[in-house]
Amino acid sequence: MLVGLPKEIKDHENRVGLTPNTVRALTRRGHKVLVQSGAGEGSYLSDAEYESAGATIVPHADDAWAAQLIVKVKEPTPAEYRYLHRDIILFTYLHLASDRPLVDALLKSGATAIGYETVQAEDGKLPLLTPMSEVAGRMATQIGATYLQKTHGGRGVLMGGVPGVASANVAILGGGIVGTNAARVAVGLGAQVTVLDVSHDRLKYLDDIYRGQLQTRFSDEYNIEEAVYEADLVIGAVLIPGGRAPWLVTAEMLPRMRKGAVIVDVAVDQGGCVETTRPTTHSNPTYELEGVVHYCVANMPSAVPRTSTFALNIQTAVYTLQLADEGLNALQKNRALQYGLNIHGGSITYPAVAEEFDMKCIEPLQALGRRIE
């Protein structure tokens, strides 16, 4: 199969969809890989490394997109919609529930779009979302600590405090992968940490492993309000797989928050779990409303691209190889990839996306059968 690796063009997106190691695995299986020149530069991976792995370096995005399987990191931007067509398989993060224009573009093109974030293993885990959730969770606390500094618009609170002075109060909304990793760093820095979640089992797990180093609270309206109003830093870590995140912090709550408090909404990719969230970029990462600093960068892990690129490829490589070897047939054989299928042949195949836009959803195997027969 012809595999294309275009350079990411989203603001400060320095990750890359394939490492030279994955390219080598593809070329050894007889596949041809077209790598746009400079695609790996943001992660300090040179064209020479890709060439040594067997790739063909091509000068333009048009050349890299002229393939059957396109492997990326982030969803296509409007400038890339023109590359979408019926005969390509797009394998990347999509986050369609918060991006109606991309949904429309994919449906119109007839392309096959598989979202990393919805590929789901038999045990219910999301193996391709997990590595970036781990990175984003750990980063969220680091970023929050930075923006709590007065020079960055925050309250001027040190995360760990000092003897005789209270440490920062951190509220983490969601105890999944993002929330757990955010808590790990926050506890390590000496902050007072509260994690809220709707799963008693998850709260019990966190309580058991931290043994009093953090508090756990059931995520209901009363507890959320109490935790948010007392917080110096609020981390939004809510996940509805493939769907839009619910608003747990409303606009009405902001005036009652501490002045100079910081919100880091990791759920921004899925619309955000804070009503006042709007996507920002690494070039202009924050804004202030009601005296509260909002950090809502939609591709946080690109700030540490080398770590993120290798962490992502460890998980994606096996699926990339199967898609290259078998094409659409891989989707029929691999249940995890079926969950990952969001759009195919002009039809939505992921329920949460269809529900968000009140559109029809077709079962993945039914949609695939239409094209393969």
Rank of each mutant, 00 (worst) to 15 (best):
G54T: 11
L94S: 06
K150Y: 10
S46Q: 10
S46V: 06
A136I: 09
T180D: 09
M139D: 03
A166I: 12
A67E: 02
D104V: 10
A171E: 03
I57W: 01
L45D: 05
G110N: 11
K74R: 08
N169D: 13
S46G: 11
M132H: 01
T77P: 12
D47I: 14
E122V: 10
S98C: 12
S52A: 15
G156T: 11
G42C: 09
A136T: 06
E134T: 05
I143N: 03
Y83D: 13
P131G: 13
E49A: 07
A105E: 11
V165P: 06
E49G: 13
H85C: 14
T77I: 12
A64H: 02
E51M: 12
P163W: 15
D47Y: 05
M132K: 03
Y44L: 14
D63A: 11
V165I: 15
H152T: 11
P131H: 09
S43C: 07
W65S: 01
G154K: 00
P127G: 05
L102N: 03
E134I: 13
S109E: 05
V165F: 10
E134F: 01
G176M: 05
K125A: 12
K150M: 06
R86D: 11
S133F: 02
V73T: 08
S98I: 13
G153P: 03
V73G: 01
L45T: 07
L129C: 04
V178W: 01
V71H: 00
Y50F: 07
H152M: 14
I143E: 02
T151K: 08
D123F: 02
P163S: 11
I89C: 09
I172S: 06
K74A: 04
D63T: 15
E122H: 05
R100H: 12
A113V: 15
S133N: 15
G175H: 09
S52W: 10
K108M: 13
H95S: 06
A79W: 14
Y50L: 09
D123Y: 04
I114E: 02
E122G: 11
K108Q: 09
R82L: 05
A111S: 14
A168D: 08
T180K: 05
A64K: 00
D63Q: 04
A140M: 06
G161V: 14
V157N: 03
Y93L: 04
T56S: 05
G110Y: 06
G156Y: 08
S43D: 11
E75L: 11
L148Q: 01
L173H: 02
K72D: 03
P131S: 07
T77Q: 08
V178M: 09
A53I: 14
H85I: 15
F91I: 04
K72F: 00
D62P: 07
G164V: 08
E41N: 05
G160N: 13
H60N: 11
D104A: 10
L129G: 02
E117I: 04
E117V: 06
G154N: 10
V58N: 00
G137E: 03
T151W: 10
V157R: 00
A111L: 07
F91C: 03
